[in-house]
Design a protein around this nucleic acid. Structure first.
Lengths: 143, 143
DNA sequence: CCATGATAGTACGGTAACAGACTAATCTTC
DNA sequence: GAAGATTAGTCTGTTACCGTACTATCATGG
């Protein structure tokens, strides 16, 4: 019996590689004791770790996601105890998002987990190809 | 006022590059007169163009998708007039998926569109980086 | 043959993303 | 200071993916 030859085009590989990265990231966070932290929460947490209390719209722009998507992401992250939303008293249309202590404690853990994943990638691809990959993805994502 | 520095890690870039590729693919297909063909249908159509009448499970395996996902993809592709499902008379549990004439006619168009996209990528990254990218993605997707 | 187990596919519910339409609040302009 | 325009965010519905649980059919041992 034959194995079917794998599909091979760039679009397919991009999708699968992205999927695989997220799976591994989620698994590593779970192994580090944060089973309720999903890869997608990075789009909320990374900006907030730099500057807490950002608005929904600023978060969305930063992560290049639509505001609708950010609405649901923040809802889930809040449900999982990582952030809280509060209306900005200075502009009552706006909602500001604040990290919980759990999320603050997570920051160094997440950094270590991502660094380790990155190292794994580098050890498989080699440093040169990893650099090329990074630059290529940056270019493609802005194409 | 400052532009926020873009997020930069490999996982994020993989997601965005994948997203961007799919957007461009969908747009190019629409421009070629196939506005109802989504990028995701590739997972159904590519295998069938090689061998028509495959089973749901074989399609799923080939595209590395779950059978549930294939069920919904085929439902949508059928709604959009690209495939038909028929129960296999030899094994009435199984469903075989058949291309419509529209989908058969699409094959060379899709090949041209993908080739053009691929050329665009190559012209931006250069042939060397494109090759490195391709190999790197293949490796990552199997990690 | 028929009970029992294996296989093919679907149903349901959840996460992750978008577009389009909407509400509420703020700003602008007269 | 109120009418109109803009802005911030949410609601609804769709696509795209998964895991778990289920149904229907087939295969096999006794």
């Amino acid at each position: 019996m034959e194995e079917a030859p794998p599909v091979n085009n760039v679009g397919f590989l991009l999708a699968k590689a992205s999927q695989r990265w997220n799976e591994r990231l989620t698994a590593a966070l779970a192994a580090a004791g944060y089973a309720n932290v999903r890869a997608s929460y990075g789009s909320v947490l990374l900006p907030l770790w730099e500057q807490d209390g950002m608005r929904m719209g600023a978060l969305a722009e930063r992560a290049r996601l639509s505001k609708q998507t950010m609405t649901t992401l923040v809802r889930l992250a809040e449900r999982d105890g990582l952030v809280r939303r509060r209306t900005d008293p200075a502009d009552r249309r706006a909602a500001r998002v604040w990290l919980t202590p759990t999320a603050v404690a997570l920051a160094p853990v997440a950094a270590a987990v991502v660094a380790e994943l990155r190292r794994e990638v580098e050890s498989v691809l080699g440093p040169r190809a990893t650099r090329v990959l990074q630059r290529a993805l940056l270019t493609l994502s802005n194409m």
